[in-house]
């Protein structure tokens, strides 16, 4: 059982968390003006790095969205960092 750390609740078992994608994968602005390749990048292409990855995760029980740095080789995960401004 891997333990992840929610910025609000602290360490909790991995099954309480849900993966939210790469950190910084922002939805393109502009609707029809956005080229197909940019939509495809946003929707379907992932960074999938070997090593350190910056990701968005959600703690399902408290609803906190946060960023987490995780090593995809060793599975070591740093404590989550709150995404909301001004939150510890």
């Amino acid at each position: 059982m891997q333990i992840f750390s929610c910025p609000f609740c602290g360490p909790r078992p991995e099954y309480e968390f849900h993966f939210g994608g790469d950190l910084g994968n922002h939805r393109p602005e502009g609707f029809d003006a956005v080229p197909d390749q940019k939509w495809a990048d946003y929707l379907y292409f992932r960074n999938n790095p070997k090593g350190m990855a910056r990701e968005v995760w959600m703690h399902l029980t408290c609803g906190e969205m946060f960023s987490m740095t995780r090593d995809t080789v060793t599975m070591e995960a740093a404590p989550g960092e709150a995404l909301a401004e001004g939150q510890p």
């Binding site: 059982m1 609000f8 609740c9 602290g10 360490p11 909790r12 078992p13 099954y15 309480e16 399902l60 029980t61 408290c62």
Partner: peptide, 21 residues
Amino acid sequence: ATAIDPRRPSASAALMFAGAT
């Protein structure tokens, strides 16, 4: 029902208990 550590305090009382929030 859970894999929480009951000796470790947590700010939120919410948890997954037998798969349910």
